[in-house]
Each structure stands twice: as structure tokens, then as C-alpha cells.
Nucleic acid binder design. Structure first.
Length: 593
RNA sequence: GGGGCUGUAGCUCAGUUGGUUAGAGUGCCGGUCUGUCACACCGGAGGCCGCGAGUUCGAGUCUCGUCAGCCCCGCCA
């Protein structure tokens, strides 16, 4: 193919098919850059050669689809192009055929100009001709294959599970599909094959994996698409450690394929540890800058903001930016604004001067000895800048975790060659849902509690830790999973705590409860986000850069125009009526108002 | 649901304090040119300034609304 020719091919007669990337007509000799999936090769047309070929070459335009045959030869001395992988050779064209013409394209695939994403998505087939996107899709294929091969070698069986399935409570909003044959009822597209893979374990499949599309109808982000691909895995007769070990191996082979370092042993942090030091359950360990709890110091301080928060069971935490004394006032104001946007009341800060004294918004509130205690607690040296947030624990942690990441990026601590992996374990099983005034599952309601914490389910549900684990790379969750409940009485107990009634659990997961009674092996598993794995390994900033046909932030596809209104006939067959059609469409004729 | 940024030629962008006929690069069309490599040079065409109101003698520019794209919060077990 075009990108594969080197000086080793000199003398060979080849035929290349591809797209005209550029055409340089010198009035006599014509150079054509021909592109295909693998790259670009220069084709040379001489006026002294075949008249037909020359006439055809003169008429070529960019993005026409052509077939060119000729002999590979070394370029003359001084005419080589070191910027091109194939720059040492060229094809002397002996035969040329236009396979298809092309209208002028909206943008040129080979020009390194930043084209708006909207345009790129609308003409995605042209965007895909760009080497960045072609390359990403090729790498995605290789990563996927490498993962399949790994699990195959480990004895896993790939089993397909249904896309048309049943809506489950808890978790994300479902995408619904109306049933025509049973009008008024709906399938749900799976948020993940969670229950099916557990049923496969109960069915004795022992080791299951599937690379599978999942669907969640929630608002999107750069790292979140409404449909995404999971590497879904489940294993029987295993502990957390077994699952972690086997699946870590999968990431190890992927990392190797992508030339990404992978440690001999991956760090393991408890959830509590991660929250304490980093304020988040997916810490970015590429740099230090840990958070420090100074609530106790704040209690006794003259700084009312701190003291009142500390007294009201709030959390006062801070981080120390090494060398941060060099920050300008406007830089710090910018950081404070950043924190306010995330919900903080403000950002208190103090620079440590060369003589050890403090300067900044809270310097005057700390006497010399308290100042020393603060510096010690914050591990701050002269030349550093300490920054603090005081708020409810959740807000304090959220804001400081975000601030830490921002500082890490701004201060250049997240080098492109830094790769920090870790497992986060011992998550809480449940969290209190303020809105609904009940406990809800942190992971999902089938996650097993730690054996030694089961007794806390009645007395102190918030204290119960779970057999759940997440794999984190550079502050992004690549995947997570858990050992599941395989005992029907424990499962019922968890449902009780979640205030899922006997009746509701029977209606929603009766089939699982039944299955748990008919010989369920202990089992557990994990699911990795394939799109995220590819995105991070290829160092792209958006999932859209590793998906062939992604959706926009509002869930649309500029290429196909999806989602779109459907014919009245289609709706009638489903016994569905649209109450409020989108702007630009007529109201249904039979609408009574 | 909330906050922020953006929207001007096919594409990427500039457009001053509100002031005559809205510019540039690139692409496109025509021409010249035998070693370029995003060829070069000469000429030409190309605009619903996202859309809708408002302020004004006058709006690409100011105000309000709306739509779309992107980033973030909420949400995403």
C-alpha cells in the first residue's frame, strides 16, 4: 500500500489505489501524492511518457480516487523528502485510471489545520482519511485484538448478551425501545451486561468475557458517550485478588502494545486513603501534592471562616504548591475563581516567605507558633504556597481534588511520559442519598460487602466496605468491578437496606434472586472502558478522537442527523404519540391539546 | 437543570469607539511554469456576519431571546 513502500521495493512494478492527496503540476512533470490507509506515496508523471496518462494526470483534482501503476525507483539525489516515510522513493507512472471523481471537499484531510469538530463530524468519512483518525482506529483494532487474545489464552469464553433487555432501577437512565408486539411495553438497552454475566456464572461458564456496547442516557462529557464499549469480564470461584491479578494482566499486555510503562506491581490504595490524600476516588498519582487535613488547627484559629466550618463538622483541607510563592496575585485570583465555580466559597492562601513568615489572605490570622504548626501540617517550605478550602467534606474534597489536578497540569507535573497506575479498593458499599433520603449503592446493588463488615448492615450501613475495586490510570478510571453477592439472603438484606421492597426486588430482579437459589458459585468480575483505554494510551483528549462515528455533547450525530422524528405510521404501529414535537415539526393531527 | 467559551466566504480566522462598498490566508475556477513535496507566480469568482426581536439616523459590532458546537458542575450504581 501507499505508506509501505521503501527503498527495498525499488525496481518492483506496483499498482497503488488511493486518493489524490495533492497534485503539483509544473507545466511539464506532474507530481501526485497518493494516499491510502497506510500513508502517502509520490507518483511521477512525465510528459514524455504515455500521452493518455499525462492528459489524465493534468486533470486530476484532490480526493479523486485513482489507480496508478508503475515502477518504484529511488528518487534522484537531492530530491528525497526526509519528512515522508516513503520520501526516498517514487513511482514512475506507467498507467493511470480514475476510479471516481470527487467534488471539492469541505476540508482537506492532509492539511494540518484545525477544522471545527462540527464540520469533521458532519463529513466524518473525510475526517477518517486523516492519518490521526485512521491511526487511532487501527490502534483501537490492535488493542481490542490484543485484549481478546489475552483472555482467550487465559481460558475465557466470549459470550454475547442481549441488547434488547429489561430496564433496571438504580444506576443511569435507560435508553428505551418500544415493543410493537407487546404494545405499551419497552425494552431497555443495557447499561452493562451485569446481570447476564452473573447468570452465565450461575450457568457454569466459569470464565466469561465480552467486548460489548453499553448504553447510558446521561449528559455527556469529553470522556463520556451515550454508547460506549466495555471489556466485560466475570469469573467464578475467585476473590478480589484473583480478579485484580488476572485483569491487571490484560492491561499489562495493552500497555506493552502501546509502549506505555506498566509497573511490576501496581499500587493499591484504600478508598479512605485516596479520599484523605487526594480528595477523590480516582487519584492522579503522576505527582505528589497530597491534601492535608487542617480542621483541628482551623478550630483554634482566629480566622472565622475556618473556625466556623471546623466547628460545624465541616472539613478544612489544603495543599501545598511547591514553588508557589512565585504565583502572581492574578494567577491566585484565577485559581480562587476556579474553586468558586466548583462550589467553594473561596480559596484561602498563604505564601511561605524566605524567612519562614507567611504572606497572603490568611497570614494575619495565624500567630508565629500556629503558623509553624500549619507549615508543618502542610509540609510547606519557604518558597511554597499553601491553599485551603473550608466547606462540607464533600465540597472541600471535590474542589481540592480539582484544584490539585489543575495545578498539576499548569505546573507541568503531568508529563506525557508519566504513567501512574493504581487500584483503589475497599469502597464504601453504600452512600446516603440526600435527595431521596435513603441509602444507595456506590457501585451497584449486587456488590458484596466485606465479610467482616456484613454485621454493620443493620447498625451502621455507611461504614460497610465492599469487595469493589477500580483501576485508575493518571486520574482516569479505566475500569472497575467487584466480587458479587452469591448468597440470596445477603442479597435480600442489601435490598432491604436500599429500601427496595420485597415486591419491587421480585419484579425487577426476581430472576436473579431465583438464580442465586439454584447453585450460584462465588463470582466476581470487572468492566473496563475500552474507549477510555484507547483514548488515554493514545494520549487523545476526547473519546470522539478514538470512535469512528461519535455523538456530540447533546447526543446527536451531525452525519446522519440522528436522533430524528419518525413517520406517523411507525408511531402508530407502536401505539405511541408524541406530545410535544420538536420545533419545526407540525403537531400531530389528532392532538387534542 | 446551572456556569463558561465559540458562531463572519467551502475551510481557518481578522474586523478598532456603532459609521461609506465586510477583509486575509487557504480551497475553488482560468492561465504560466519540467524535480516539486501544503510547488511557485498572475488573474477571477465566492458572504442570510447562526437565527429572531429590540435600542439607534445607522448594528458584524450594543441589549434580550433562541439554536448549534465545545468545556465544566449537577447527573453518570
Amino acid at each position: 500500500m501507499c505508506g509501505e513502500l521503501t527503498s527495498e521495493n525499488i525496481g518492483q512494478v506496483v499498482r497503488l489505489c488511493g486518493w489524490v492527496s495533492s497534485c503539483r503540476n509544473h507545466g511539464g512533470v506532474i507530481f501526485i501524492n497518493l494516499r491510502d490507509r497506510e500513508g502517502v506515496t509520490q507518483v511521477l508523471v512525465n510528459p514524455s511518457d504515455d500521452e493518455q496518462v499525462y492528459k489524465l494526470a493534468k486533470a486530476l483534482r484532490n480526493e479523486w480516487v485513482v489507480s496508478a501503476a508503475g515502477t518504484v525507483r529511488a528518487r534522484p539525489e537531492g530530491m528525497r523528502n526526509p519528512k515522508m516515510p516513503t520520501g526516498d522513493v517514487e513511482i514512475v507512472c506507467e498507467n493511470l485510471a480514475v476510479l471516481n471523481r470527487a467534488d471539492p471537499v469541505p476540508f482537506e484531510p492532509d492539511i494540518p489545520e484545525k477544522v471545527s469538530e462540527e464540520t469533521r463530524l458532519k463529513y466524518r468519512y473525510i475526517d477518517i482519511r486523516r492519518s490521526e483518525l485512521t491511526g487511532a482506529l487501527v490502534m483501537r483494532h490492535r488493542i481490542t485484538k490484543c485484549i481478546r487474545d489475552y483472555y482467550d489464552a487465559e481460558g475465557f469464553i466470549e459470550v454475547e448478551t442481549p441488547f434488547l433487555t429489561k430496564s433496571t432501577p438504580e444506576g443511569a437512565r435507560d435508553f428505551l425501545v418500544p415493543s410493537r408486539m407487546q404494545q405499551g411495553t419497552f425494552y431497555a438497552l443495557p447499561q452493562s451486561p451485569q446481570l447476564f454475566k452473573q447468570l452465565l456464572m450461575i450457568g457454569g461458564m466459569d470464565k466469561y468475557m465480552q467486548i460489548v456496547r453499553c448504553f447510558r442516557d446521561e449528559d455527556l462529557r469529553a470522556d463520556r458517550q451515550p454508547e460506549f464499549t466495555q471489556v466485560d469480564v466475570e469469573m467464578s470461584f475467585v476473590t478480589c485478588q484473583d480478579v485484580i491479578r488476572v485483569n491487571e494482566g490484560a492491561m499489562r499486555v495493552v500497555a506493552k502494545l502501546c509502549d506505555v510503562p506498566f509497573p511490576e506491581t501496581v499500587k493499591v490504595l484504600s478508598y479512605d486513603h485516596a479520599m484523605r490524600d487526594f480528595g477523590t476516588d480516582r487519584p492522579d498519582l503522576r505527582f505528589e501534592m497530597t491534601l492535608h487535613d487542617v480542621t483541628d488547627l482551623a478550630k483554634g484559629s482566629d480566622f472565622k471562616v475556618f473556625a466556623s466550618v471546623a466547628d460545624a463538622k465541616g472539613l478544612v483541607k489544603g495543599l501545598t504548591a511547591k514553588g508557589g510563592a512565585a504565583f502572581t496575585r492574578s494567577q491566585i485570583d484565577g485559581l480562587a475563581e476556579f474553586c468558586r465555580e466548583l462550589g467553594a466559597k473561596g480559596l484561602a492562601w498563604a505564601k511561605v516567605l524566605d524567612d519562614g513568615t507567611l504572606s497572603g489572605s490568611l497570614a494575619k490570622f495565624f500567630t508565629a507558633d500556629k503558623c509553624d504548626a500549619l507549615k508543618a501540617a502542610m509540609d510547606a517550605q519557604p518558597g511554597d504556597c499553601m491553599m485551603f478550602v473550608a466547606d462540607e467534606p464533600k465540597t472541600t474534597n471535590k474542589v481540592l481534588a480539582a484544584l490539585r489536578c489543575k495545578l498539576g497540569k499548569d505546573m507541568g507535573l503531568c508529563g506525557r511520559d508519566l504513567w501512574a497506575w493504581c487500584w483503589v479498593v475497599d469502597f464504601p458499599l453504600l452512600e446516603w442519598d440526600q435527595l431521596e433520603q435513603r441509602w444507595s449503592a456506590c457501585h451497584h446493588p449486587f456488590t458484596a460487602p466485606l465479610d467482616e463488615d456484613v454485621h454493620l448492615l443493620d447498625s451502621d450501613p455507611g461504614k460497610v466496605r465492599s469487595k469493589a475495586y477500580d483501576l485508575i490510570l493518571n486520574g482516569t478510571e479505566l475500569g472497575g468491578g467487584s466480587v458479587r453477592i452469591h448468597d440470596v439472603s445477603v442479597q435480600k438484606k442489601v435490598f432491604d437496606t436500599l429500601k427496595i421492597s420485597e415486591q419491587e426486588s421480585r419484579a425487577k430482579f426476581g430472576f436473579l434472586l431465583d438464580a442465586l437459589r439454584f447453585g450460584a458459585p462465588p463470582h466476581g468480575g470487572i468492566a473496563f472502558g475500552l474507549d477510555r483505554i484507547v483514548m488515554i494510551m493514545l494520549q487523545r483528549d476526547s473519546l470522539r478522537d478514538v470512535i469512528a462515528f461519535p455523538k456530540t455533547t447533546s447526543g446527536g450525530c451531525p452525519l446522519t442527523g440522528a436522533p430524528a422524528a419518525v413517520d406517523d405510521k411507525q408511531l402508530a404501529e407502536l401505539d405511541i404519540r408524541v406530545i410535544r414535537p420538536p420545533a419545526g415539526l407540525p403537531m400531530p393531527p389528532d392532538d387534542a391539546g
